[in-house]
Structure formats: C-alpha cells, structure tokens
Design a binder for these strands. Structure first.
Lengths: 228, 228
DNA sequence: ATTATAATTAAATTCTGATTAGATTATTCC
DNA sequence: GGAATAATCTAATCAGAATTTAATTATAAT
C-alpha cells in the first residue's frame, strides 16, 4: 500500500505512552491535543489521523494499561500455590507495574472520572457515537473484572482457612486504593525501588490476612506490651 | 453596614459545599463556574464577589476539608490510650468524615494535581498573585502535616512494642491511599454505613500491625492450614 | 427616608482548544 | 517512473469558559 512506520512517523503506541505521561502531569481536561502532539513532535491535527477524538485517545490509554495488568494477574492466578503466595505475587506484580509506568498507573486513578463523564450529547464530548459508549462500557466491565480477580482469591483463601474472615469487598478496595495511590506518590530514584515498595505493600496486606503467623515471608512481630 | 445573609444570598460555605459536590462529579478542569453557580442558584459572575478566581475557590474547598480532618486527628492524638486504640480512632474518624462528605473526600484525591498545576503565568491561571502561591504552599504543608500525624503514631507504636516493625512511610501511604479511595467508591445507602466501612478498614490495618494478637477488637483468625 | 454597601446580574471581552478541510510529502507496490 | 495511500502539515472554524464592567436590587444603620 503506502507509507510504513519510518523515521518521522510515530505509531499508536508511541502516542499512547506520550499521552499517558502528559495526562499524569496535567489530567485529562487540562491536557490539550497540542500538548500530546508536542511530546511526539507532531501537530495536534495529526493526532486525528490516529485517533478519532480526544475521548478515544484517553480510552485507549486506559484500555492498554488495564489489559497489561489483567494479563499478568490471570497468569499468576492459575498457579497451584497457596492463596497467600498467589496474592502476594498479584500485589507485587500490580505495584511493580504501577511504579514501572506511573503515568499509566496514575491515569487509571485520575482519568476514570473523565471517562465516565464523556457522555455523548452533553456539553463537551460530541459522541452520539454508539461505538464510544460501547467501548467505554466494555472498559468498565474489564475494570470490575480486575477487581474481582483480587476479591476471588481472598474469598478462596478464607474458604481454605488460610486467611481470617474479612469483608472481601472492602478489603479488596482497601488494597486497590493503596496500590493506585502508589502511582501518585512514587518517584523513581527515591529511597525505595518499585520492587521494594511492592514487597512492603504485599507484606502489609498479607500480614493483615494471616496474622503474620502463616507461611510466606517472615513478618517479625514484637509481642504487644499491653497498656503502652 | 449593609445587606446580611438573607433569603437570596448564599454564604461562602454554601458555595464551598456546592463546589465540592460539582467537583467530585466533574473534576476541576471540567467544572465551569456556571456549573457551580447553578448549584446555588447564582450566575457565574456572582461567584467572583465571593472568590477572587476559580483557583482560589478550589483552594478554599480543599483547605476547608483538610482542616476539618486535621482538627479531628489532633484531638484524638492527644489522648492517653494505647497507640493501637488511638490509631483505630484516627482511621475511623477519617473514614467516617470521608463517607459523610464524599464530595470533599474525593476532591482531596482528585483535585490536588489541579492545584499543583495552577501555576501563575502559565497558560490557564493568571495569578502572578503571590498570595495564591503562598496559600497553596501552606495547604501542601498542612497536607504533609496530616500525613505525619499518622506516621508519627505508627512510629510511636513500634517504639512502644505495640506494633511490629514496618516501614512507617510506606505503611502510612498505603493507609491513606485506601482511605482516599473510599471517597471514590463509597455510595451512601449501600450495603455498609460509613461507620461499618471505617471499622473494617481500621481492623484491616491494625491487624496488620499487631498480628491480631494484641488488644483491641477481636480479630478472629483461622489458623492457616499450610499447603492449601 | 437616606445612605452606604453587599449581593447579584446581564452583557461584553478575550482566549483557549477541539475539530475539520484542504493541501503536501513520503513510502511502497507495480 | 507512476499510482495509491499513509502520515503529516497549515490554516480555518467554532464553541465554550474565565473574567471584567457597568448596572441593579436589597438590606442595615443612621
């Protein structure tokens, strides 16, 4: 046919990564197409060759980030280890992802709402586009599925007697809130690596579930000295 | 002097609450002065009688929300109870606040970045206003102070032997991430009340620190059955 | 009642930013 | 080399939004 990805051309993935980065800094509404374009040495108009609209671009960023995370979790989940070990792997996997690419991680936290509000017809987005709504809803289903992966293994661990009885829904959200927040405060090159942060966080939640008594990494416990 | 708060007039606090609500739904950039004004039956122009600019309005929303939280924490903190009990009170206090007013809670999560980016001179905000920068920086100092309240009591608990040794910085952020996230998913009238959510969350983190062995609420623990 | 001022408004101003239209340039296939 | 198409650009278009200005209305104190 014609022109291939060459020197001056960028592909969609380049744009998505650049967009994620700009989004992390500025947020969806404050990010202009020009900002994103500048990041990959294009003009705003050029972006419309790759994406139908700003909304679709955002959606693509989020879809990509989420899919990576889900794939990884699924892989871990179907492993024949104790629940605690699998959960530990899931937590560290997720957090390492987030620290490796804080832009996407932060977008996942902050831009969800913009996506929800990208209502067709309503001032702002002009998508009478059923296509958009459909893809957006699919994204939200995926996100729920992601949350469910965690919820499920917690329930499994409780059923197996590995974990104490907790409210799986709230516990899961506490975890995911903590994970998501990492994308906000984590800075590469700081005191801790992504791996280290991940290990600490996993320890935090696994200890909460097992009381620090079960298998897994050692979780040194000072016996409480009642009464301060 | 003249006109007092009467029928048609609204006071600043009315506007702040309304603004928090609109902000939660739309986010800072997507929220127009008109949106906020409509919420209190005013026109956009009227808001400028009460607030110097949109940035100042946002800042006021956040300041108010944070101050409420800090006051409450301080009160709890200077109580002569074991660290675990004080921490529990702090967690539940914070989360009940968030669930009682998810708008402010969510703003605290989502709008922080808009506030950071409200740079004077830079396209968008026109504050060459040193006043704005000063107040904004003061806000960030307050936010750090808030985080420190939690960090401090964790360290105190570790020193007292009540808590196991954790990385206080990361643990604190895990907690606050979980708390903040509540403002995002919590819906009044759902399965759980704010109090219930708060209790579960407090339990989650305190158990992680004490191994469920110390004082405090009972944290039933199924002995792990090693090897699934 | 008069006056001073607080609260509000409608209308104008000015900018920014998403999106479109119409070329232009580069690349591959024949 | 020519045809077809991809990738990009420049220059409009167009709407929405923050802020300003210049009135207008209401209230309290004198």
């Amino acid at each position: 046919m014609a022109r291939k990805p060459a020197d001056q051309s960028v592909n969609k993935m380049d744009i998505l990564l650049a967009a994620a980065d700009v989004l992390r800094r500025n947020g969806y509404e404050a990010t202009t197409m020009k900002d994103i374009a500048a990041q990959v040495n294009l003009t705003a108009a050029s972006l419309y060759h790759h994406f139908k609209s700003k909304d679709f671009l955002l959606l693509s960023v989020l879809e990509t980030g989420l899919q990576v995370a889900i794939d990884q979790m699924e892989r871990i989940l179907h492993t024949p280890q104790p629940c605690a070990d699998r959960l530990r792997a899931m937590i560290t996997g997720h957090i390492v992802d987030v620290t490796a690419n804080p832009a996407v991680g932060a977008a996942m936290v902050f831009e969800i709402r913009s996506l929800m509000n990208a209502r067709p017809g309503i001032a702002g987005s002009i998508h009478s586009d059923a296509a958009f709504i459909e893809r957006r809803d699919a994204f939200f289903r995926q996100r729920d599925a992601f949350e469910n992966l965690f919820r499920r293994i917690i329930k499994e661990g409780i059923a197996a007697g590995e974990f104490r009885e907790v409210d799986a829904a709230v516990f899961t959200r506490a975890m995911l809130g903590a994970h998501n927040w990492v994308g906000v405060w984590y800075r590469p090159g700081g005191r801790l690596t992504g791996q280290e942060v991940a290990a600490i966080m996993a320890d935090t939640f696994i200890t909460s579930l097992t009381g620090g008594l079960a298998e897994g990494q050692p979780a040194p416990l000072h016996r409480a000295q009642p009464g301060r």
